[in-house]
Design a protein around this nucleic acid. Structure first.
Lengths: 244, 244
DNA sequence: GCAAGCTGAATCGTATACAATATTTTCAGA
DNA sequence: TCTGAAAATATTGTATACGATTCAGCTTGC
């Protein structure tokens, strides 16, 4: 087996230890950005070397990732990036339609100025990522649009549920995506924004439903794609767009 | 400080070790049943003695409980049974109204025979617990009614979200309840069942909304009640109704 | 009498060592 | 060459030890 541990670098400075939160975020992002493919075995020792932390802390972080369903813990085997099944995929999108339908109605019925500002800033970021061609950033930003609505609805609990669902959606896309999104779909975040700001709640709800079904319809729930194995490369800091 | 560890017994046999799952369930139930009051400090060493397990395992279990928001982890201080604030209480019930409204509509639009059987069995259990006067069992069963709908809707993910929300609701009631439920409210699970089985979806949704608002209206979100300290007593196996 | 600081006990955070389990390799026999 | 068992290796599960932090009670100075 070739050495998987070499691109780590653990941040920037040599001696500055990362917090658990930072390590968690690094792994989480790598998974959501498709740098760590579903099914990848996250070996504890390897992660220890990469982040220069003890196994105790890594285990606690992996447990948290597992609680959020982005990794699966298998007894005596270890942690693996989750490989959502077709049934899970349906469930995730069904839950999203319910939650996001409610959320977008809430914000559309009473759009605030901060909402407008947040959405416009976000759309600019989304466009920037797409122009640059940073695929990881694009994926992250698109999820972020949906999370933004949850945050603006001032529902932290629901926002947390949705954060899990969007992360799982990203895994679902990684495993089952059959074809890339077309230009029409890419524009739907703009349309949603306009409907929300125009207080056209019913239309916004309907478009959100179509938007989510559109993503789902691009999946081929029969096929799956194989995992990759290079932890170190996946967990490097991306030089592209900054995280939000 | 008096000795808090003595009623443990750790199950039945002396030498049979409990699984993590069992320990988790024991603590979770004790919290939801109001045997461990909100704010109670769950000291690791104490739990170790009670369940005869190492601190490593206890810490992992406490982390899971924290992920489900029934305990709060405070750095260098330890784990405490969550003490929901008034804002959290509002959020929890708002989320419940959304989720449970959808769920009850789903089951009411297509009630199955297994649903009918499950609901009727459940109502009998609920009544039995109330007749016996086992307060812990009553609380657990009432939550279970709501979870039943989620399970019957075949939405495991949403069911898990709701499991967290009902557990938190139990804590909210423990902290903020101003007066006990009246007979009318106690009967609403029956009425909900009838509406669902009669396929009167709109009425069922409306009653569910009223039911949840009724629970919320019995709260006094200003006052709070002090925690208790007797871990060992709280974590004993209840001799009453069996768990489901 | 009371606030500030100090000291010791209690408690938590992490690393490390060892045991248990899983995986891979080796090698004999057909 | 293939198959199966057994040894060797790799990986995870848990306990324990030690350092760091917090808390309670006490002392000291005002």
């Amino acid at each position: 087996m070739d050495d998987v541990v070499e691109t780590i670098d653990a941040g920037s400075g040599p001696a500055d230890r990362l917090t658990n939160e930072q390590v968690y975020a690094r792994i989480f992002d790598a998974i959501v950005d498709h740098k760590l493919r579903p099914g990848t075995h996250l070996k504890e020792d390897e992660l220890c070397e990469i982040f220069r932390v003890g196994r105790t802390r890594i285990r606690s972080i992996l447990a948290r990732l597992s609680a959020n369903h982005v990794v699966e813990l298998v007894e005596n085997r270890g942690a693996f990036v989750s490989r959502p099944t077709a049934e899970e995929a349906c469930e995730v999108f069904r839950a999203r339609r319910m939650i996001e339908g409610h959320l977008i109605r809430r914000v559309a019925e009473n759009p605030t100025d901060t909402l407008r500002a947040a959405l416009e800033t976000h759309l600019a970021h989304e466009k920037a990522a797409r122009d640059i061609g940073d695929q990881g950033a694009v994926i992250r930003r698109c999820s972020k649009f949906h999370l933004l609505l949850a945050e603006q609805a001032e529902s932290p609990i629901v926002a947390r549920f949705l954060r899990e669902l969007t992360a799982r959606s990203s895994l679902i896309v990684a495993v089952h995506e059959a074809r890339p999104p077309d230009d029409c779909e890419l524009d739907e975040h703009h349309e949603l924004t306009e409907l929300v700001l125009a207080r056209r709640a019913d239309d916004a709800v309907a478009l959100m439903e179509r938007h989510l079904r559109g993503i789902e319809s691009r999946l081929d729930l029969a096929s799956q794609q194989p995992p990759a194995h290079d932890l170190k490369a996946a967990l490097q800091v991306t030089a592209g767009q900054p995280r939000d």
